[in-house]
Amino acid sequence: MSMMPTRDTLPEFAKHAVASPIVILALLLASLLGISAAHAETVQVPGTTVSMDPPEGFEISDTFAGFQQLKTSNSILVVEMPKEAYSEISTIFESQDSAASALASQGITVTGVSSIDINGEAVNLVQGVQSAQGLEVGKYLMVLDGNMTAMITINVIDDSLSESEAIDALQSVTLGTPASLEEQLGQLIFKYQDAAPFVHNQVMAGSAASISTFEGTDPSGKKPFIIITNSLSSFELGDLQAASEMMLAQTADLQDAEVSTGEIVESAGGDAFRVEARAPDMLAIHYLWARPDNNYLRLAAMGAPDLLEPLIAQVDTVAKSVSFR
């Protein structure tokens, strides 16, 4: 399915998990690629602590952490965050009111919150429907507390996946030990080099990397960090200036930012389109790569203006090092 997403490829809560675990919840290998789930065998999601028995016809994705059913575009997305993020993220799942409040800005209508059994523990399951690109996408979301905070979302575009099948898959989930940094980075379709004080922080959803100037999380949300993420579906970007402005306008703290006229910048992975976005309390440096397969890659560096401004050269160094596997 080819479409221009109305939301970013990475869930808003996952982006803010780097800076702050207080979240506005949103949408958001090689060895297991192509293994069919038709026989309901337990499969580990590469680069994560999560294993599960996916529904029939779901296979490990090679573009994000999770499973996809190619004939229907139904998917299961796994996003892991630091363990300490669980205490705040889990509050979103406490009731229908708390979930509805957090998800409303992403066009998700919460239809219910129920409790399901996961390995003998009661876990709250949020169900809802998201309206996007003229589609009604069913949602099943839950968060688990393990060695990592694991967020699992089932997206149902084709209703051939029943509610009982979705819940059975979620109830099969088990959590193991965290993957090594090398294993996590190996799931990404891109590579990059750190530039001090920016150092690797974490890999999220098998499709995004965070590079920060601090360890763990930053409750203030002001310390500089970089997110690099690839799109999870193919579509044509069209005008790169307009696409950049749209993506930035959908990013927390940058909705009303002034966006500069972009320029083409050479990088190890080819030409990228660079803009800056300035708001009173936030500065962003944004790079966008249009890929030949109608996918894109974006890099966004964000931080308080007085903290990020002195580090723009380092941000540009990281961006220019980005290449593709």
Rank of each mutant, 00 (worst) to 15 (best):
241 Q>P: 09
287 Y>V: 13
229 T>C: 14
289 W>N: 01
241 Q>F: 11
244 S>Q: 00
291 R>T: 04
234 S>K: 15
252 A>Q: 08
255 Q>K: 06
248 L>M: 05
263 E>P: 05
273 F>M: 08
277 A>P: 02
296 Y>F: 15
271 D>A: 15
261 T>H: 08
292 P>D: 01
261 T>L: 05
266 E>K: 01
277 A>C: 04
258 E>C: 10
236 E>S: 14
234 S>I: 12
268 A>M: 10
252 A>K: 10
244 S>N: 01
289 W>T: 07
230 N>G: 15
288 L>G: 06
258 E>D: 15
264 I>W: 05
258 E>T: 15
280 P>M: 10
280 P>T: 03
293 D>W: 08
293 D>E: 06
285 I>V: 09
292 P>G: 04
255 Q>L: 09
296 Y>T: 09
238 G>W: 02
231 S>F: 07
292 P>E: 01
273 F>R: 04
233 S>T: 14
243 A>L: 04
294 N>T: 06
237 L>K: 03
258 E>S: 14
287 Y>E: 05
295 N>T: 15
288 L>N: 02
285 I>L: 02
282 M>S: 06
256 D>L: 07
274 R>E: 01
263 E>M: 14
246 M>R: 13
282 M>R: 10
264 I>H: 09
261 T>V: 12
270 G>A: 03
236 E>Q: 14
244 S>A: 15
260 S>P: 10
237 L>H: 04
231 S>I: 08
271 D>S: 15
274 R>L: 10
283 L>D: 00
259 V>C: 04
265 V>R: 11
229 T>I: 10
237 L>I: 06
278 R>T: 10
280 P>Y: 05
251 T>V: 04
286 H>I: 03
287 Y>W: 09
243 A>P: 12
280 P>R: 01
242 A>H: 12
251 T>W: 03
257 A>S: 15
246 M>E: 07
245 E>Q: 08
281 D>N: 14
243 A>Q: 08
286 H>Q: 12
253 D>H: 12
251 T>F: 01
256 D>P: 09
256 D>W: 12
229 T>K: 09
249 A>I: 05
277 A>W: 00
274 R>F: 07
233 S>F: 02
270 G>Y: 00
282 M>V: 09
294 N>V: 04
286 H>W: 12
286 H>F: 15
260 S>A: 12
254 L>F: 14
259 V>L: 09
290 A>G: 11
292 P>Q: 00
232 L>Y: 06
283 L>M: 03
250 Q>A: 15
233 S>M: 14
236 E>V: 13
255 Q>R: 07
251 T>S: 05
258 E>N: 13
233 S>N: 13
256 D>R: 11
234 S>M: 14
246 M>L: 12
291 R>I: 10
259 V>N: 04
292 P>W: 00
275 V>Q: 02
263 E>N: 09
249 A>K: 11
291 R>A: 11
266 E>W: 00
234 S>Y: 14
284 A>P: 05
275 V>R: 00
271 D>F: 11
253 D>Q: 10
277 A>L: 05
292 P>C: 00
259 V>E: 04
268 A>E: 06
275 V>T: 03
231 S>D: 04
260 S>T: 13
242 A>G: 12
294 N>I: 10
262 G>W: 01
236 E>H: 14
233 S>E: 02
282 M>K: 11
266 E>L: 01
244 S>V: 06
254 L>W: 01
244 S>I: 04
274 R>C: 00
245 E>F: 07
